[in-house]
Simulated scan of single mutants.
Amino acid sequence: MQFIDLAAQYQHLKDKIDARIQAVLDHGHYIMGPEVAELEDKLAEYVGVKHAITCANGTDALTLVMMALGIKQGDAVFCPTFTFFATAEVVAYEGATPVFVDSNEDTFNICPVDLEKQIQKVIAEGKLKPTAIIAVDLFGLPANYPEIKRIADQYGLKLVEDAAQGFGGEINGKRAGSFGDIATTSFFPAKPLGCYGDGGAIFTDNDDYAELIKSLRVHGKGKDKYDNIRIGMNSRLDTIQAAVLLEKLAAFPQELINRNIAAEKYHSELKSQYKTPVVPEGYVSSWAQYTLVAEDRAAEMEKYKAQGVPTMVYYGTCMHQQTVFKALGYQEGDFPVAESLSKSVFSLPMHGYLNIKKV
């Protein structure tokens, strides 16, 4: 059994993907070719936003957003401590300060109660300017955007959705990537919608953000590539990856159904043994991972290994515990839920072609 079976997906889509790649090889426009524009149109339509701007990877997508929002030294950007490193890395890269927030114990996502507490703490200290929130759609489930948006509006903060794991998720029919002021995703192969290399995208309804990001992703260019009007970066999605993603996006709705069937099977078999994932009413998860909570994680993972079932840990170390952020002065116990999750969660195989036997 594969943890994420990309080979099974490729065999299912082989003829269509091969034809798409061959078309790129035939026309030879390997960078920003016609498939890139086609993909951006279809991504925007799927997510339900005016603009989808592709780029080289998910981290670049977040970096471009930080640049577009003008995040800088002295700014505080609030983000979960229980997530992948890139979410806070891009904040620090702009010279700003990531301010970490605890998790909700049921959804694993950023906790709105602790978010407001951390915002008020920064305001009281008066050293940093609260500027933005980055919420992460962890393991496929959108964060609590109705409540997070209320908090963002109350304190005048920009809201960024990191939908790298959440693409395909929903809240009351509204899809991941359409929440907040601007959103990002990753097309890393292991993501719900992944390519065969690196790739990313930014989603927004804001025309000004869209035009700015289109410039920033190509060295800050103006009317042509020899008139650079701002400092940008080189972050373009290559055409072959766009071609692959076009066929994967066409198959994605059925794969999403399959993921939810697999998740329900897991839940019915495992709810008596573990704390299983919670999907609130009105929410849909894209199940980037199916994640359990166990008192003795190592022992449980060994049991699955003995049965030939691979498992993974996301994430074994919280952000505030990592060496590079020690200078921020956080202590053990500052984020009790996230710290507990980092010691107890593990994930089972999940993909759109999973055949689950009794687990």
Rank of each mutant, 00 (worst) to 15 (best):
Q241T: 03
G222M: 05
I229M: 04
M233C: 13
H219D: 11
L256G: 08
E255P: 01
D238C: 12
N228E: 09
L256A: 07
E255K: 12
E264L: 12
I231H: 05
T239L: 11
Q254I: 08
I261A: 11
F252M: 03
K223T: 06
I240Q: 10
G220R: 06
L246S: 12
L216S: 11
L246I: 15
I229N: 04
I231D: 13
K225G: 02
L237Y: 05
I229D: 02
R230M: 15
L246H: 07
G232T: 09
R230E: 10
L216Q: 07
I231S: 08
E247C: 12
A242L: 05
R217V: 10
L245E: 04
R217W: 06
L216P: 08
L216T: 12
I231Q: 13
K248D: 00
K225W: 07
V244S: 04
A243R: 11
S235C: 11
D238M: 12
I261S: 01
A262K: 07
I261K: 15
N260E: 09
K225H: 06
D224I: 02
L246N: 12
L246K: 06
K248E: 06
K248L: 02
L256K: 09
K248C: 01
K221D: 00
A262R: 04
I240R: 14
A251G: 01
R217L: 07
I261G: 00
A243W: 07
L246Q: 11
I261L: 14
V218L: 06
E247F: 05
L237R: 12
V244L: 05
G232L: 04
K223Q: 07
V244C: 13
G222Y: 02
G232P: 06
D238Y: 14
I240E: 09
R230G: 00
R230W: 00
R259F: 12
L256Y: 07
R230K: 14
I231P: 00
E255L: 12
K248H: 09
D227W: 03
R259Y: 11
G222A: 08
K221I: 10
A243I: 10
S235L: 04
R217F: 08
N228L: 15
K248W: 00
I261H: 13
D224S: 14
A251C: 02
I229Q: 14
V218S: 05
A263D: 00
R259M: 11
R236N: 13
V244T: 08
V218K: 07
N258C: 04
K221H: 08
V218H: 01
Q241M: 10
Q254G: 01
D224N: 15
L237K: 11
N234L: 13
D227V: 13
Y226P: 00
F252Y: 15
N260I: 09
A262W: 04
R236I: 14
N228K: 14
I261C: 01
E255Q: 15
